[in-house]
Design a protein around this nucleic acid. Structure first.
Lengths: 247, 247
DNA sequence: CGATTCATTGAGACCAGTCAACTGGCGTGG
DNA sequence: CCACGCCAGTTGACTGGTCTCAATGAATCG
């Protein structure tokens, strides 16, 4: 990937959150960024760390998670190119959870200081980033609704819907109904509060009903309407405001 | 309550998030605020609303929640005096969930415009508020861990721990081991993804084990150490940084 | 080709849900 | 002042969705 394109990922993402002037885009483009490649299943930051830079996902996919003492794991969100999963570290020194990779992932590390300078100079960018943390929180809340009150079928279908829409919003879905899905059923289970075995059975149900096609690390949705109904999916919470929304 | 004290609630809360200068406190103190009283079980804002003011809780207790079509409800967080449960509406126009009262509650309504002016003039206040939304998100994530990976006993014990610490942080716990707890077992269940019946049985267990004393709307913790262990409670995520921490 | 990882399948157990009934306190109105 | 209704809490019996344990395929890789 061409270095000039690194910031494009970020600009594209922030444009789903707020309008940006040319000057602001230029400022984003000149952010210092050191590019780093992580293999699959590696931690980018760990619980207890006190990072001095934020990590922008350029290629690949990462997730935030927390381990309990006895080995139980809860995955709290998946992040795709354009996302900054540890943006919060700008304001909270100590990490209360870890960020790990699903697959080989390229990230751009941006010093906190550079981001703080940018925020001081361009309040609208600061607001867009604040907005990002708010949309992030909205995703957590919806995820909570799934974990607390939805069936396994609804939860899994919902995650499929959410990820496709987010890929489309930043323009990196394979097509209108297809996107990357590079995670194992164990990871799916840890994200949705289910056992691997049960995830397997439910995914088979969804396949048998002709709703999805999940082969390797690619997700294709055969019947968006019915999948959305099955998931009780309502995309309001993504706050995309028409930019990149499906349908 | 004396009007002069209204802003004190907010100042006290923001001081758990960042240090404030006298000038900043004064600016907070002169925020316009219209005081309003809501009865129990009333909605302050509803899903779909586009509020033009934020609501600061002065007395009482509120919660954020979402209803599914079939009547299932998920409560996504409880808010106590000093909290601004709909702070996000400053940056996201449409509410993707509702905010309701548990008991009679007094709130101060602050126009978005006043908050935006304040943020523009005092970047440190803006940062403190941003920080608040981040800590809020951290609570959601921990709640997710509970919903996805913890047993009913752990979840309920965890909520008891969290609420006591938050009450203590803003100085309105009754004493070091006692605080308000004005919610029914049905509400507890909707928050923790459990049925009312099961909440009842678990609360009885915790009582029988001598860990807590839950009478009427008052929670007293008999054995903080053991309750914390039972909950696997780790207060890092509240990011109180020593201010108001228990022990 | 052995090793490893992921997906799949079956059998049985259990945590938590559902349904239904009953208690007790509290406020209201006759 | 008592009868009544209502709501939160409690209890029992039964159900069921999901988990655990364990074994087997299938695919990938050095």
């Amino acid at each position: 990937m061409n270095p000039a394109h690194h910031a494009d990922r970020l600009i594209r993402k922030l444009e789903t959150l707020a309008a940006l002037s040319d000057e602001e885009k230029e400022a984003l483009g000149s952010l210092p960024m050191s590019v780093k490649v992580f293999g699959a299943d590696q931690d980018i930051v760990r619980e207890g760390d006190c990072p001095v830079e934020c990590c922008l996902v350029l290629e690949g996919m990462v997730f935030r998670y927390l381990m309990l003492d006895d080995g139980r794991r809860q995955i709290m969100g998946f992040y795709i190119p354009g996302d900054i999963p540890d943006l919060q570290s700008l304001h909270i020194k100590i990490m209360d959870h870890s960020v790990g990779t699903l697959v080989t992932t390229i990230v751009g590390l941006i010093p906190h200081q550079s981001l703080n300078n940018l925020n001081a100079r361009y309040p609208r960018i600061a607001n867009a980033l604040w907005r990002d943390t708010i949309v992030d929180a909205a995703m957590f809340r919806l995820w909570m609704v799934g974990l607390g009150r939805k069936s396994a079928h609804e939860r899994i279908a919902h995650l499929f819907c959410e990820l496709l829409m987010r890929f489309k919003a930043v323009g990196i879905a394979k097509d209108a109904l297809t996107c990357e899905f590079p995670m194992t059923q164990t990871e799916l289970g840890d994200a949705l509060g289910l056992s691997t075995v049960h995830v397997n059975r439910v995914v088979q149900d969804l396949r048998a009903d002709g709703l999805i096609n999940l082969r390797g690390s690619s997700l294709h949705i055969n019947d968006w309407e019915r999948l959305q109904q099955r998931a009780k999916f309502n995309p309001t919470y993504l706050h995309l405001e028409g930019r990149g929304a499906a349908e």
